[in-house]
Design a binder for these strands. Structure first.
Lengths: 246, 246
DNA sequence: CGTTTCGTTGATATTAATCAACGAGCGTGG
DNA sequence: CCACGCTCGTTGATTAATATCAACGAAACG
Protein backbone atom coordinates (compact mmCIF):
# COMPACT_ATOMS: atom_id res chain seq x y z
CA UNK A 1 0.00 0.00 0.00
CA UNK A 2 2.99 2.27 0.37
CA UNK A 3 6.31 2.12 -1.37
CA UNK A 4 9.06 0.83 0.77
CA UNK A 5 10.90 4.09 1.20
CA UNK A 6 11.40 7.46 -0.40
CA UNK A 7 13.26 7.43 -3.68
CA UNK A 8 15.42 9.84 -5.57
CA UNK A 9 13.13 11.74 -7.97
CA UNK A 10 14.19 9.86 -11.09
CA UNK A 11 14.05 6.48 -9.44
CA UNK A 12 10.44 6.71 -8.47
CA UNK A 13 9.03 6.42 -11.95
CA UNK A 14 11.47 3.66 -12.73
CA UNK A 15 10.08 1.68 -9.84
CA UNK A 16 6.55 2.15 -11.04
CA UNK A 17 7.45 0.65 -14.36
CA UNK A 18 9.16 -2.37 -12.88
CA UNK A 19 6.89 -3.20 -10.01
CA UNK A 20 3.64 -5.02 -10.54
CA UNK A 21 2.19 -3.19 -7.57
CA UNK A 22 3.69 -0.72 -5.15
CA UNK A 23 1.12 -1.82 -2.59
CA UNK A 24 2.15 -5.42 -3.00
CA UNK A 25 5.66 -4.37 -2.04
CA UNK A 26 4.51 -2.42 0.97
CA UNK A 27 6.31 -3.35 4.15
CA UNK A 28 3.42 -2.45 6.37
CA UNK A 29 0.86 -4.24 4.26
CA UNK A 30 0.61 -7.37 6.36
CA UNK A 31 0.15 -5.23 9.48
CA UNK A 32 -2.60 -3.13 8.04
CA UNK A 33 -6.03 -3.50 6.58
CA UNK A 34 -4.33 -4.19 3.27
CA UNK A 35 -3.55 -7.67 4.54
CA UNK A 36 -7.13 -8.38 3.49
CA UNK A 37 -6.41 -7.65 -0.17
CA UNK A 38 -5.48 -10.13 -2.88
CA UNK A 39 -2.96 -9.44 -5.61
CA UNK A 40 -5.39 -7.99 -8.15
CA UNK A 41 -6.94 -5.79 -5.51
CA UNK A 42 -3.56 -4.41 -4.57
CA UNK A 43 -3.02 -3.39 -8.18
CA UNK A 44 -6.39 -1.66 -8.18
CA UNK A 45 -5.39 -0.02 -4.96
CA UNK A 46 -2.22 1.37 -6.52
CA UNK A 47 -4.33 3.52 -8.77
CA UNK A 48 -6.49 5.09 -6.10
CA UNK A 49 -4.19 5.30 -3.13
CA UNK A 50 -2.37 8.54 -2.51
CA UNK A 51 0.93 8.21 -0.71
CA UNK A 52 1.68 11.17 1.46
CA UNK A 53 4.42 12.21 3.77
CA UNK A 54 3.39 14.71 6.40
CA UNK A 55 5.76 16.88 8.41
CA UNK A 56 5.33 16.87 12.19
CA UNK A 57 2.33 18.68 13.68
CA UNK A 58 0.21 18.53 10.57
CA UNK A 59 -3.54 18.09 10.65
CA UNK A 60 -4.81 14.98 8.91
CA UNK A 61 -8.43 15.84 9.59
CA UNK A 62 -10.57 17.72 12.06
CA UNK A 63 -13.47 16.63 14.20
CA UNK A 64 -16.77 17.25 12.45
CA UNK A 65 -15.31 17.52 8.99
CA UNK A 66 -17.05 15.41 6.34
CA UNK A 67 -15.09 12.22 5.81
CA UNK A 68 -13.53 12.39 2.36
CA UNK A 69 -10.91 9.72 2.83
CA UNK A 70 -9.64 6.99 5.09
CA UNK A 71 -6.00 6.53 6.04
CA UNK A 72 -3.51 3.80 6.62
CA UNK A 73 -0.44 4.82 8.59
CA UNK A 74 2.83 3.35 7.35
CA UNK A 75 5.35 5.31 9.39
CA UNK A 76 5.35 7.78 12.27
CA UNK A 77 2.80 8.55 14.95
CA UNK A 78 -0.55 10.30 14.79
CA UNK A 79 -2.50 11.62 17.77
CA UNK A 80 -6.25 11.16 17.72
CA UNK A 81 -8.10 13.55 19.97
CA UNK A 82 -11.10 15.67 20.83
CA UNK A 83 -11.00 19.26 21.98
CA UNK A 84 -13.47 20.73 24.43
CA UNK A 85 -14.59 24.27 23.82
CA UNK A 86 -12.37 25.61 26.60
CA UNK A 87 -9.27 24.00 25.17
CA UNK A 88 -9.14 20.87 27.26
CA UNK A 89 -7.92 18.06 25.06
CA UNK A 90 -8.41 14.35 25.37
CA UNK A 91 -6.20 12.15 23.27
CA UNK A 92 -8.09 8.98 22.49
CA UNK A 93 -5.21 7.11 20.94
CA UNK A 94 -1.90 7.17 19.18
CA UNK A 95 -1.99 5.68 15.71
CA UNK A 96 1.23 4.06 14.57
CA UNK A 97 2.45 1.89 11.70
CA UNK A 98 -0.34 -0.36 10.49
CA UNK A 99 -3.14 1.70 12.03
CA UNK A 100 -6.21 2.38 9.97
CA UNK A 101 -8.08 5.63 10.51
CA UNK A 102 -11.72 5.50 9.63
CA UNK A 103 -12.84 2.08 10.85
CA UNK A 104 -16.24 3.40 11.82
CA UNK A 105 -16.89 4.89 8.36
CA UNK A 106 -18.72 7.86 9.82
CA UNK A 107 -20.19 10.67 7.75
CA UNK A 108 -18.09 13.22 9.61
CA UNK A 109 -14.88 12.61 11.56
CA UNK A 110 -15.56 11.76 15.18
CA UNK A 111 -12.02 12.73 16.16
CA UNK A 112 -9.29 15.07 15.07
CA UNK A 113 -5.93 13.74 13.91
CA UNK A 114 -2.48 15.33 13.77
CA UNK A 115 0.92 13.94 12.93
CA UNK A 116 3.31 14.07 15.88
CA UNK A 117 6.49 13.32 13.99
CA UNK A 118 6.98 12.81 10.27
CA UNK A 119 4.20 10.53 9.11
CA UNK A 120 3.94 8.47 5.98
CA UNK A 121 0.50 7.33 5.11
CA UNK A 122 -1.79 6.09 2.39
CA UNK A 123 -4.90 8.05 1.71
CA UNK A 124 -7.87 6.31 0.11
CA UNK A 125 -10.86 8.34 -1.03
CA UNK A 126 -13.77 7.16 1.02
CA UNK A 127 -16.08 6.46 -1.91
CA UNK A 128 -13.45 4.18 -3.38
CA UNK A 129 -13.06 2.43 -0.08
CA UNK A 130 -16.79 2.02 0.34
CA UNK A 131 -17.04 0.58 -3.13
CA UNK A 132 -14.36 -1.96 -2.34
CA UNK A 133 -16.17 -2.96 0.83
CA UNK A 134 -19.37 -3.45 -1.10
CA UNK A 135 -17.61 -5.77 -3.50
CA UNK A 136 -15.52 -7.72 -1.06
CA UNK A 137 -17.14 -9.22 2.02
CA UNK A 138 -13.69 -10.27 3.06
CA UNK A 139 -12.71 -6.64 3.43
CA UNK A 140 -15.76 -5.88 5.52
CA UNK A 141 -14.82 -8.76 7.76
CA UNK A 142 -11.35 -7.30 8.19
CA UNK A 143 -12.81 -3.89 8.88
CA UNK A 144 -15.09 -5.32 11.51
CA UNK A 145 -12.15 -7.09 13.05
CA UNK A 146 -10.20 -3.82 13.22
CA UNK A 147 -13.18 -1.99 14.68
CA UNK A 148 -13.65 -4.72 17.26
CA UNK A 149 -9.99 -4.61 18.24
CA UNK A 150 -10.20 -0.86 18.61
CA UNK A 151 -13.31 -1.15 20.74
CA UNK A 152 -11.57 -3.59 23.04
CA UNK A 153 -8.55 -1.32 23.31
CA UNK A 154 -10.60 1.71 24.18
CA UNK A 155 -12.48 -0.26 26.82
CA UNK A 156 -9.13 -0.65 28.51
CA UNK A 157 -8.71 3.09 28.28
CA UNK A 158 -12.06 3.61 29.99
CA UNK A 159 -11.02 1.41 32.89
CA UNK A 160 -7.70 3.23 33.10
CA UNK A 161 -9.30 6.66 33.16
CA UNK A 162 -12.17 5.74 35.40
CA UNK A 163 -10.50 3.72 38.08
CA UNK A 164 -6.71 3.94 38.04
CA UNK A 165 -4.48 6.47 39.75
CA UNK A 166 -1.61 8.42 38.23
CA UNK A 167 1.08 5.83 38.92
CA UNK A 168 -0.99 2.99 37.53
CA UNK A 169 -1.78 5.03 34.44
CA UNK A 170 1.84 5.86 33.69
CA UNK A 171 3.06 2.33 34.35
CA UNK A 172 0.29 0.89 32.21
CA UNK A 173 1.02 3.33 29.44
CA UNK A 174 4.73 2.57 29.33
CA UNK A 175 4.19 -1.16 29.29
CA UNK A 176 1.38 -1.05 26.77
CA UNK A 177 3.27 1.28 24.50
CA UNK A 178 6.27 -1.00 24.58
CA UNK A 179 4.00 -3.88 23.70
CA UNK A 180 2.58 -2.07 20.70
CA UNK A 181 5.98 -1.09 19.39
CA UNK A 182 7.28 -4.60 19.88
CA UNK A 183 5.20 -5.64 16.90
CA UNK A 184 7.83 -4.10 14.62
CA UNK A 185 11.10 -3.29 16.30
CA UNK A 186 12.75 -6.20 18.03
CA UNK A 187 11.41 -6.33 21.55
CA UNK A 188 13.52 -3.92 23.54
CA UNK A 189 13.39 -2.53 27.06
CA UNK A 190 13.90 0.92 25.60
CA UNK A 191 10.58 2.56 24.83
CA UNK A 192 10.86 5.48 22.40
CA UNK A 193 8.35 8.19 23.17
CA UNK A 194 7.88 10.48 20.21
CA UNK A 195 4.95 12.20 21.91
CA UNK A 196 5.46 15.03 24.37
CA UNK A 197 4.64 14.90 28.07
CA UNK A 198 1.63 17.02 27.27
CA UNK A 199 0.45 14.38 24.82
CA UNK A 200 0.92 11.67 27.42
CA UNK A 201 -0.94 13.79 29.97
CA UNK A 202 -3.84 14.37 27.60
CA UNK A 203 -3.95 10.68 26.82
CA UNK A 204 -3.96 9.60 30.47
CA UNK A 205 -6.31 12.28 31.75
CA UNK A 206 -3.57 13.91 33.85
CA UNK A 207 -1.60 17.15 33.78
CA UNK A 208 1.87 17.45 32.37
CA UNK A 209 3.24 18.09 35.87
CA UNK A 210 1.76 14.89 37.23
CA UNK A 211 3.15 12.92 34.31
CA UNK A 212 6.57 14.44 34.82
CA UNK A 213 6.55 13.86 38.56
CA UNK A 214 5.41 10.27 38.23
CA UNK A 215 8.05 9.47 35.64
CA UNK A 216 10.67 11.11 37.87
CA UNK A 217 9.43 9.05 40.78
CA UNK A 218 9.72 5.82 38.79
CA UNK A 219 13.22 6.88 37.78
CA UNK A 220 14.15 7.60 41.41
CA UNK A 221 12.89 4.15 42.30
CA UNK A 222 15.04 2.64 39.54
CA UNK A 223 12.06 1.20 37.71
CA UNK A 224 12.99 3.16 34.61
CA UNK A 225 15.66 5.47 33.27
CA UNK A 226 14.74 8.53 31.30
CA UNK A 227 16.69 8.60 28.05
CA UNK A 228 16.54 11.09 25.17
CA UNK A 229 13.12 10.74 23.53
CA UNK A 230 12.03 7.81 25.61
CA UNK A 231 12.50 5.67 28.68
CA UNK A 232 14.35 2.48 29.36
CA UNK A 233 12.44 0.00 31.48
CA UNK A 234 14.72 -1.39 34.17
CA UNK A 235 12.31 -3.50 36.15
CA UNK A 236 9.39 -4.67 34.09
CA UNK A 237 8.29 -7.02 36.82
CA UNK A 238 7.83 -4.25 39.36
CA UNK A 239 6.46 -1.91 36.75
CA UNK A 240 3.83 -4.45 35.92
CA UNK A 241 2.99 -4.65 39.57
CA UNK A 242 2.61 -0.88 39.74
CA UNK A 243 0.36 -0.98 36.70
CA UNK A 244 -2.05 -3.46 38.26
CA UNK A 245 -1.65 -2.15 41.77
CA UNK A 246 -3.84 -3.83 44.36
CA UNK B 1 -36.60 -12.03 18.08
CA UNK B 2 -38.52 -12.11 21.30
CA UNK B 3 -42.19 -12.74 21.76
CA UNK B 4 -44.16 -9.67 22.53
CA UNK B 5 -44.83 -10.49 26.15
CA UNK B 6 -45.04 -13.40 28.52
CA UNK B 7 -48.00 -15.70 27.98
CA UNK B 8 -50.06 -17.94 30.11
CA UNK B 9 -48.53 -21.43 29.86
CA UNK B 10 -51.14 -22.86 27.56
CA UNK B 11 -51.23 -19.84 25.33
CA UNK B 12 -47.59 -20.03 24.43
CA UNK B 13 -47.82 -23.17 22.34
CA UNK B 14 -50.96 -21.83 20.72
CA UNK B 15 -49.08 -18.77 19.65
CA UNK B 16 -46.31 -20.84 18.16
CA UNK B 17 -48.79 -22.66 16.00
CA UNK B 18 -50.46 -19.51 14.79
CA UNK B 19 -47.53 -17.22 14.31
CA UNK B 20 -45.28 -17.48 11.32
CA UNK B 21 -42.39 -16.33 13.45
CA UNK B 22 -42.17 -15.18 17.04
CA UNK B 23 -39.13 -13.14 16.07
CA UNK B 24 -41.06 -11.45 13.30
CA UNK B 25 -43.52 -10.28 15.95
CA UNK B 26 -40.82 -9.00 18.22
CA UNK B 27 -41.38 -5.42 19.32
CA UNK B 28 -37.71 -4.72 19.74
CA UNK B 29 -36.74 -6.26 16.45
CA UNK B 30 -36.43 -3.06 14.48
CA UNK B 31 -34.27 -1.57 17.25
CA UNK B 32 -31.89 -4.47 17.41
CA UNK B 33 -29.53 -6.37 15.19
CA UNK B 34 -32.54 -8.41 14.08
CA UNK B 35 -33.56 -5.47 11.92
CA UNK B 36 -30.99 -6.91 9.51
CA UNK B 37 -32.92 -10.15 9.08
CA UNK B 38 -35.42 -10.97 6.39
CA UNK B 39 -38.60 -12.98 6.95
CA UNK B 40 -37.10 -16.41 6.27
CA UNK B 41 -34.14 -15.65 8.48
CA UNK B 42 -36.41 -14.71 11.33
CA UNK B 43 -38.07 -18.08 11.08
CA UNK B 44 -34.68 -19.76 11.19
CA UNK B 45 -33.86 -17.59 14.16
CA UNK B 46 -36.94 -18.78 16.00
CA UNK B 47 -35.44 -22.23 16.15
CA UNK B 48 -32.09 -21.27 17.59
CA UNK B 49 -32.89 -18.31 19.78
CA UNK B 50 -33.46 -18.91 23.46
CA UNK B 51 -35.73 -16.42 25.15
CA UNK B 52 -34.81 -15.84 28.75
CA UNK B 53 -36.03 -13.71 31.57
CA UNK B 54 -33.47 -12.96 34.24
CA UNK B 55 -34.25 -11.73 37.73
CA UNK B 56 -32.37 -8.65 38.92
CA UNK B 57 -28.67 -8.98 39.79
CA UNK B 58 -28.08 -12.05 37.70
CA UNK B 59 -24.83 -12.70 35.89
CA UNK B 60 -25.17 -13.00 32.13
CA UNK B 61 -21.48 -13.72 31.67
CA UNK B 62 -18.13 -13.07 33.29
CA UNK B 63 -15.00 -11.46 31.99
CA UNK B 64 -12.61 -14.02 30.57
CA UNK B 65 -15.23 -16.72 30.11
CA UNK B 66 -15.25 -18.37 26.68
CA UNK B 67 -17.99 -16.81 24.57
CA UNK B 68 -20.69 -19.40 24.07
CA UNK B 69 -23.49 -17.08 23.03
CA UNK B 70 -24.37 -13.55 22.07
CA UNK B 71 -27.32 -11.64 23.47
CA UNK B 72 -29.96 -9.23 22.37
CA UNK B 73 -31.64 -7.32 25.16
CA UNK B 74 -35.37 -6.85 24.76
CA UNK B 75 -36.31 -5.44 28.17
CA UNK B 76 -34.58 -4.21 31.28
CA UNK B 77 -31.07 -2.94 31.92
CA UNK B 78 -27.74 -4.74 32.00
CA UNK B 79 -24.52 -3.34 33.42
CA UNK B 80 -21.32 -4.10 31.53
CA UNK B 81 -18.19 -3.79 33.63
CA UNK B 82 -14.70 -4.83 34.53
CA UNK B 83 -13.45 -5.55 38.02
CA UNK B 84 -9.91 -4.80 39.15
CA UNK B 85 -8.30 -7.29 41.48
CA UNK B 86 -8.83 -5.03 44.48
CA UNK B 87 -12.54 -4.70 43.87
CA UNK B 88 -12.59 -1.40 42.02
CA UNK B 89 -15.23 -1.62 39.35
CA UNK B 90 -15.58 0.30 36.13
CA UNK B 91 -18.91 0.13 34.40
CA UNK B 92 -18.32 0.52 30.69
CA UNK B 93 -21.94 0.83 29.71
CA UNK B 94 -25.57 0.11 30.42
CA UNK B 95 -27.23 -2.11 27.87
CA UNK B 96 -30.92 -1.50 27.35
CA UNK B 97 -33.66 -2.57 24.96
CA UNK B 98 -32.23 -3.20 21.52
CA UNK B 99 -28.63 -3.58 22.73
CA UNK B 100 -26.59 -6.39 21.31
CA UNK B 101 -23.93 -7.97 23.52
CA UNK B 102 -21.07 -9.54 21.64
CA UNK B 103 -20.47 -7.15 18.77
CA UNK B 104 -16.73 -7.80 18.86
CA UNK B 105 -17.17 -11.57 18.61
CA UNK B 106 -14.25 -12.22 20.91
CA UNK B 107 -13.08 -15.67 21.95
CA UNK B 108 -13.59 -14.80 25.60
CA UNK B 109 -15.79 -12.08 27.08
CA UNK B 110 -13.96 -8.81 27.41
CA UNK B 111 -16.46 -7.58 29.99
CA UNK B 112 -18.74 -8.96 32.66
CA UNK B 113 -22.49 -8.46 32.45
CA UNK B 114 -25.21 -8.49 35.11
CA UNK B 115 -28.89 -7.70 34.98
CA UNK B 116 -29.80 -4.68 37.10
CA UNK B 117 -33.55 -5.14 37.04
CA UNK B 118 -35.60 -7.90 35.45
CA UNK B 119 -34.14 -8.48 32.01
CA UNK B 120 -35.67 -10.18 29.03
CA UNK B 121 -33.25 -11.21 26.37
CA UNK B 122 -32.61 -13.48 23.44
CA UNK B 123 -29.64 -15.75 23.61
CA UNK B 124 -28.09 -16.97 20.38
CA UNK B 125 -25.41 -19.67 20.47
CA UNK B 126 -22.29 -18.09 19.06
CA UNK B 127 -21.59 -20.77 16.48
CA UNK B 128 -25.07 -20.27 15.09
CA UNK B 129 -24.53 -16.57 14.97
CA UNK B 130 -21.16 -16.91 13.29
CA UNK B 131 -22.68 -19.20 10.72
CA UNK B 132 -25.37 -16.66 9.95
CA UNK B 133 -22.75 -13.97 9.52
CA UNK B 134 -20.81 -16.14 7.12
CA UNK B 135 -23.92 -16.62 5.01
CA UNK B 136 -25.25 -13.11 5.10
CA UNK B 137 -22.95 -10.18 4.31
CA UNK B 138 -25.85 -7.96 5.20
CA UNK B 139 -25.66 -9.16 8.77
CA UNK B 140 -21.94 -8.52 8.95
CA UNK B 141 -22.60 -5.02 7.72
CA UNK B 142 -25.12 -4.50 10.49
CA UNK B 143 -22.73 -5.93 13.02
CA UNK B 144 -20.01 -3.58 11.88
CA UNK B 145 -22.43 -0.71 12.12
CA UNK B 146 -23.29 -1.64 15.70
CA UNK B 147 -19.63 -2.05 16.59
CA UNK B 148 -18.85 1.32 15.05
CA UNK B 149 -21.66 3.00 16.95
CA UNK B 150 -20.43 1.45 20.17
CA UNK B 151 -16.90 2.62 19.46
CA UNK B 152 -18.12 6.15 18.93
CA UNK B 153 -20.13 6.04 22.13
CA UNK B 154 -17.22 4.81 24.20
CA UNK B 155 -15.00 7.51 22.75
CA UNK B 156 -17.38 9.96 24.36
CA UNK B 157 -16.92 8.08 27.60
CA UNK B 158 -13.15 8.44 27.33
CA UNK B 159 -13.46 12.20 26.94
CA UNK B 160 -15.85 12.33 29.87
CA UNK B 161 -13.58 10.33 32.15
CA UNK B 162 -10.37 11.95 31.03
CA UNK B 163 -11.30 15.60 30.98
CA UNK B 164 -14.60 16.39 32.65
CA UNK B 165 -15.28 17.17 36.30
CA UNK B 166 -17.93 15.65 38.53
CA UNK B 167 -20.66 18.14 37.64
CA UNK B 168 -20.09 17.82 33.93
CA UNK B 169 -20.11 14.04 34.20
CA UNK B 170 -23.41 13.91 36.07
CA UNK B 171 -25.09 16.45 33.81
CA UNK B 172 -23.83 14.65 30.72
CA UNK B 173 -24.99 11.33 32.07
CA UNK B 174 -28.51 12.51 32.85
CA UNK B 175 -28.96 14.14 29.46
CA UNK B 176 -27.44 11.25 27.54
CA UNK B 177 -29.46 8.70 29.43
CA UNK B 178 -32.63 10.61 28.71
CA UNK B 179 -31.65 10.68 25.07
CA UNK B 180 -31.16 6.94 24.96
CA UNK B 181 -34.45 6.20 26.65
CA UNK B 182 -36.25 8.63 24.37
CA UNK B 183 -35.84 6.10 21.58
CA UNK B 184 -38.71 4.10 23.07
CA UNK B 185 -40.72 5.92 25.65
CA UNK B 186 -42.22 9.18 24.49
CA UNK B 187 -39.67 11.89 25.14
CA UNK B 188 -40.17 12.91 28.74
CA UNK B 189 -38.32 15.17 31.12
CA UNK B 190 -38.51 12.42 33.72
CA UNK B 191 -35.49 10.16 33.51
CA UNK B 192 -36.00 6.79 35.21
CA UNK B 193 -32.80 5.53 36.79
CA UNK B 194 -33.00 1.82 37.46
CA UNK B 195 -29.33 1.70 38.36
CA UNK B 196 -28.10 2.55 41.84
CA UNK B 197 -25.93 5.54 42.77
CA UNK B 198 -23.07 3.09 43.07
CA UNK B 199 -23.64 2.00 39.48
CA UNK B 200 -23.67 5.60 38.32
CA UNK B 201 -20.50 6.29 40.29
CA UNK B 202 -18.73 3.29 38.79
CA UNK B 203 -19.85 4.37 35.34
CA UNK B 204 -18.66 7.96 35.75
CA UNK B 205 -15.42 7.18 37.57
CA UNK B 206 -16.62 8.85 40.77
CA UNK B 207 -17.58 7.74 44.26
CA UNK B 208 -21.14 7.26 45.38
CA UNK B 209 -20.79 10.25 47.73
CA UNK B 210 -19.74 12.55 44.94
CA UNK B 211 -22.61 11.37 42.78
CA UNK B 212 -25.08 11.91 45.59
CA UNK B 213 -23.71 15.35 46.45
CA UNK B 214 -23.70 16.50 42.85
CA UNK B 215 -27.26 15.34 42.27
CA UNK B 216 -28.30 17.08 45.49
CA UNK B 217 -26.55 20.22 44.32
CA UNK B 218 -28.38 20.16 40.98
CA UNK B 219 -31.61 19.67 42.88
CA UNK B 220 -30.83 22.61 45.18
CA UNK B 221 -30.19 24.70 42.08
CA UNK B 222 -33.56 23.63 40.66
CA UNK B 223 -31.98 22.03 37.61
CA UNK B 224 -33.58 18.70 38.51
CA UNK B 225 -35.92 17.14 41.02
CA UNK B 226 -35.13 13.80 42.52
CA UNK B 227 -38.14 11.49 42.20
CA UNK B 228 -38.53 7.84 43.19
CA UNK B 229 -36.22 5.80 40.95
CA UNK B 230 -35.18 8.70 38.81
CA UNK B 231 -34.90 12.40 38.30
CA UNK B 232 -37.02 14.97 36.56
CA UNK B 233 -35.10 17.46 34.49
CA UNK B 234 -36.39 20.95 35.19
CA UNK B 235 -33.97 23.05 33.18
CA UNK B 236 -32.51 21.14 30.30
CA UNK B 237 -31.01 24.31 28.88
CA UNK B 238 -28.93 25.00 31.96
CA UNK B 239 -28.18 21.33 32.45
CA UNK B 240 -26.80 21.22 28.96
CA UNK B 241 -24.66 24.18 29.79
CA UNK B 242 -23.35 22.42 32.88
CA UNK B 243 -22.56 19.37 30.81
CA UNK B 244 -20.43 21.27 28.33
CA UNK B 245 -19.09 23.73 30.84
CA UNK B 246 -16.48 26.16 29.57
C1' DC C 1 22.47 34.51 20.08
C1' DG C 2 18.20 35.59 21.58
C1' DT C 3 13.69 33.35 21.88
C1' DT C 4 10.59 29.82 22.39
C1' DT C 5 9.29 25.31 23.73
C1' DC C 6 9.70 21.58 26.81
C1' DG C 7 10.41 19.17 30.93
C1' DT C 8 11.30 19.44 35.80
C1' DT C 9 10.52 20.71 40.45
C1' DG C 10 8.52 23.32 44.39
C1' DA C 11 4.61 25.60 46.82
C1' DT C 12 -0.14 25.97 47.22
C1' DA C 13 -5.01 25.30 46.03
C1' DT C 14 -8.83 22.55 44.85
C1' DT C 15 -11.36 18.63 43.78
C1' DA C 16 -12.94 14.51 44.86
C1' DA C 17 -12.02 10.49 47.98
C1' DT C 18 -12.33 8.70 52.39
C1' DC C 19 -14.19 8.14 56.88
C1' DA C 20 -18.18 8.47 59.56
C1' DA C 21 -22.89 8.98 61.03
C1' DC C 22 -27.64 8.76 60.14
C1' DG C 23 -32.40 8.07 58.31
C1' DA C 24 -35.56 5.93 55.03
C1' DG C 25 -37.27 2.04 52.81
C1' DC C 26 -37.62 -3.03 52.42
C1' DG C 27 -37.68 -7.72 53.19
C1' DT C 28 -37.64 -11.33 56.65
C1' DG C 29 -38.86 -13.69 60.42
C1' DG C 30 -40.64 -13.74 64.94
C1' DC D 1 -48.27 -7.08 62.27
C1' DC D 2 -44.28 -5.39 64.14
C1' DA D 3 -39.33 -5.52 64.98
C1' DC D 4 -35.00 -6.27 63.30
C1' DG D 5 -31.38 -6.04 60.23
C1' DC D 6 -30.01 -4.73 55.46
C1' DT D 7 -29.16 -1.95 51.80
C1' DC D 8 -29.29 2.48 49.97
C1' DG D 9 -28.82 7.29 49.68
C1' DT D 10 -27.61 11.54 51.98
C1' DT D 11 -24.77 14.69 54.42
C1' DG D 12 -20.79 16.32 57.24
C1' DA D 13 -15.79 16.38 58.47
C1' DT D 14 -11.38 15.39 57.09
C1' DT D 15 -7.74 13.64 54.11
C1' DA D 16 -5.37 12.60 50.05
C1' DA D 17 -4.52 13.01 45.32
C1' DT D 18 -3.93 15.74 41.66
C1' DA D 19 -4.38 20.37 39.62
C1' DT D 20 -2.77 24.89 39.52
C1' DC D 21 0.55 28.49 39.87
C1' DA D 22 5.24 29.65 39.54
C1' DA D 23 10.08 29.47 38.65
C1' DC D 24 13.88 27.61 36.34
C1' DG D 25 17.26 25.13 33.23
C1' DA D 26 18.14 22.87 28.96
C1' DA D 27 17.42 21.92 24.45
C1' DA D 28 15.62 23.35 19.92
C1' DC D 29 14.92 26.97 16.59
C1' DG D 30 15.08 30.78 13.85
Amino acid sequence: MVVQQSHAPGQHEANERFMVSACSQCQTRHLSICAAFGTEELITLDHVVQHRTLPPKTTLFDFGQPVDAVYSISEGTVRLFRLLSDGRRQIVGFAIKGAFLGVTLPATFDLSAESIDTVRMCRIPVQTFRAMIDEKPHLLRKLHELTARELQAIQGQVILLGRRNAEERIATFLLAHRERLARFSPCSVTVPLVMSRTDIADYLGLTIETVSRTISKFAREKLIVVVPDGVRLLDIEKLNHRANEA
